[in-house]
């Protein structure tokens, strides 16, 4: 088990080195990609700065707390896009052309190969930029270091990444049946737009309450950013952290089963 895990870790590291070498072949392009991400972060911050010029809180979140939430979302989304997005988007093409055969024949886990094959270094600095925004927010609120909260944040941040990854994997798996899954990015964006806002906004209108329940307890996408941001700068609720851990395990298991079920339906297109 440990051997297998280490082998996969080495494989991901090698893929990372390979994609980095490719990215560095076009350094100018890489720098522009980074500047686009930086520009987008500035636009987001300008948007929320404008909003907080009109109000002191949004759904009970103060400005520094909300800034931390935005930074957390930016970092987490950056991590997902860096590690998994390109590989998942590419899966459709692998199915359509039949090139998935070559991946299935390799003596490695298909899920790891499919989802981690293409690391996008162009979005990697989003994690750092999100981290800087979170640090700025903590500074603004005079946050005092609390090791329990810090550890809980790291754990729930990893859990949030895992839940988001599970959803992406499940969406990716549909490609096997749809063959052309061009709307994957669109569907992914729909889900990620749910994670972009605090859960408390769903209390502002009666019709949204059931949605909040659905996306917290059934399809736990609202936990992805809300829980790590909450444990760090708002309420640290051990029960919510425990539920997030359970939801993470369930999401990973369910998405893996779904992916394997999809692979069983795969019929090579190349021969």
């Amino acid at each position: 088990m440990i051997d297998r895990t280490l082998r996969h870790a080495r494989l991901i590291a090698s893929l990372g080195r390979y994609t980095l070498a490719r990215e560095m072949s076009f350094r100018g392009n890489y720098l522009v990609k980074l500047s686009v991400e930086l520009l987008w972060l500035f636009i987001l911050l300008a948007f929320y700065k404008t909003v907080f010029m009109k109000t002191s809180t949004v759904a009970t979140w103060t400005e520094p707390q909300y800034l931390f939430f935005v930074g957390c979302h930016f970092a987490l989304n950056g991590l997902i896009e860096t590690l998994f997005m390109d590989g998942c988007v590419d899966f459709t093409e692998l199915v359509r052309t039949g090139d998935l055969d070559f991946i299935l024949l390799k003596p490695m886990d298909e899920q790891v190969l499919v989802t981690c094959r293409k690391i996008d270094w162009g979005t990697s600095l989003n994690v750092v930029m999100g981290g800087v925004v979170m640090a700025l927010a903590l500074y603004q609120m005079n946050w005092r270091f609390d090791p329990v909260r810090a550890v809980a944040f790291v754990v729930t941040f990893v859990c949030g990444t895992a839940i988001a990854y599970s959803f992406m994997l499940a969406l990716t798996s549909f490609s096997v049946w749809l063959v052309r899954n061009q709307s994957l990015m669109e569907m992914w964006w729909l889900f990620s737009s749910l994670a972009r806002y605090p859960r408390e906004i769903f209390r502002s209108l009666a019709w949204a309450e059931p949605l909040s329940f659905l996306f917290t307890y059934i399809l736990p996408f609202l936990l992805v950013v809300n829980v790590p941001a909450n444990v760090m700068v708002r309420v640290f609720d051990p029960a919510t952290v425990a539920f997030t851990l359970a939801a993470t395990a369930a999401s990973l298991w369910a998405s893996r089963m779904f992916f394997r079920r999809a692979l069983r339906s795969y019929r090579s297109a190349s021969s």
Partner: peptide
């Protein structure tokens, strides 16, 4: 048709966000 419908789904969260902003501002 599908693309257009999907495009408006995030509008629901935008409505909720602005409702929260107006409620919180008290204006």
């Amino acid at each position: 048709l599908l693309g257009t419908f999907l495009r408006f789904v995030p509008m629901a969260t935008t409505v909720l966000l602005w409702k929260s902003i107006y409620d919180s501002s008290g204006r």
